[in-house]
């Protein structure tokens, strides 16, 4: 990995303000970085701030009623110059978006324009960012659709979004995202609305694009299974902060934050014996306390002790690259992992 990452997010915070209402701090100081051509995951349950993070990075938050702070240093073109995505003027940002940065959303039907044929939506990007015209743009668009595995691409160009299946729509959206060979693609729950066999197709496609085009991918999802096979590095979010971050093998082999290990214990695994009991995390996300008062996970935590409420816990790093924010971490192995000798699979 190069010395400097492609994207380095420092202390990103997003607060939604409303008159006569309490401020909502959706993201509360998130830091992570992402190397060129790498795949990094942001994982968490609803309300953890993962989607707001992606919108903030893309400059897609509404202009009013939102306070964004922190820095997100991005190197356009992978060069030496750095820009801060959070403070870039709207016009420069618009220029970067589509060319250097691209985004794929969860629901392709609402991110595609329903009254414009697929072809025109794809060529629009090619015309705007790559300066292609007419027939050239059209055949480039067909090539793109073919690249993402849409059969009979020329005919599809004239079809409207509702004429495509969910999986095909998501492919079309990915085609639009990769139209300008972006350096960084942010995918926010790209497979959540899809059936599992279609999800497998889309994940395979994303892996292929990362390997072949060298696009870096920020994968945002609630599904620990999806990130386990896809991401080089995983950040687990809780109540607007990263509570644990590590290379994927490390994270799953030795989950250190009680929230991470709790999540892993509460999901039924397809390959586990049937009678293996699930251990749920008690309470709900609504039980979180303010980070300023202590660990937000404390009210639901099995390792809770009084010193958990002595202000925000610091991020610690025990092994290289494995960081966690916890005073009383778990030092066990992941559920379903038998012996350390059996799991010496090296990281990718």
């Amino acid at each position: 990995m190069p010395a400097r990452p492609l994207l380095a997010v420092h202390d990103l915070a997003v607060t939604f303000t409303q008159r006569r209402r309490r401020d909502v701090r959706a993201v509360d100081g998130i830091s992570f970085s992402l190397g060129e051509g790498s795949v990094v995951g942001l994982v968490g349950e609803s309300g953890c701030g993962k989607s707001v993070t992606s919108l903030a990075l893309m400059g897609l938050l509404p202009p009013r009623g939102v306070q964004v702070s922190g820095r997100a240093l991005f190197r356009p073109g992978g060069g030496d110059a750095e820009v801060d995505l959070l403070s870039l003027p709207t016009r420069r940002m618009r220029d970067l978006r589509g060319r250097e940065l691209a985004m794929v959303f969860q629901d392709p039907l609402s991110s595609l324009n329903p009254v414009v044929p697929i072809g025109r939506q794809v060529t629009e990007i090619l015309v705007r960012h790559r300066g292609l015209k007419g027939a050239a743009a059209r055949s480039a668009a067909a090539e793109l659709l073919e690249r993402v595995g849409i059969p009979d691409p020329r005919r599809r160009l004239s079809e409207y979004p509702h004429e495509l299946s969910g999986g095909m729509r998501q492919r079309a959206l990915i085609a639009m995202a990769v139209a300008c060979r972006p350096r960084l693609m942010i995918a926010d729950e790209p497979t959540t609305a899809l059936d599992v066999t279609i999800q497998a197709q889309i994940l395979e496609l994303l892996k292929e694009l990362v390997t072949e085009e060298g696009t870096a991918l920020l994968m945002i999802t609630h599904d620990l299974g999806v990130v386990a096979g896809l991401c080089d590095e995983i950040n687990v979010l809780y109540a607007g902060r990263v509570v644990e971050g590590a290379p994927r093998h490390d994270l799953f082999r030795a989950p250190t934050h009680p929230y991470t290990s709790g999540l892993l214990r509460s999901i039924p695994r397809l390959d586990a014996p049937r009678d293996e009991p699930l251990t749920p995390i008690r309470g709900t996300v609504n039980d979180a306390i303010e980070w300023a008062d202590g660990c937000a996970f404390a009210p639901r935590c099995d390792n809770y002790a009084e010193d958990c409420l002595g202000g925000p816990p610091d991020m610690r790093e025990e092994r290289t690259g494995h960081r966690f924010r916890c005073v009383h971490p778990v030092h066990g192995r992941a559920p379903g992992v038998p012996e350390p000798t059996a799991t010496q699979g090296g990281d990718r």
Binding site: R253, R269, R348
Partner: peptide
């Protein structure tokens, strides 16, 4: 096609 939350298995 069902993802398993374990990189060793996934790989």
């Amino acid at each position: 096609a069902v993802p398993v939350p374990d990189p060793v298995v996934e790989d």
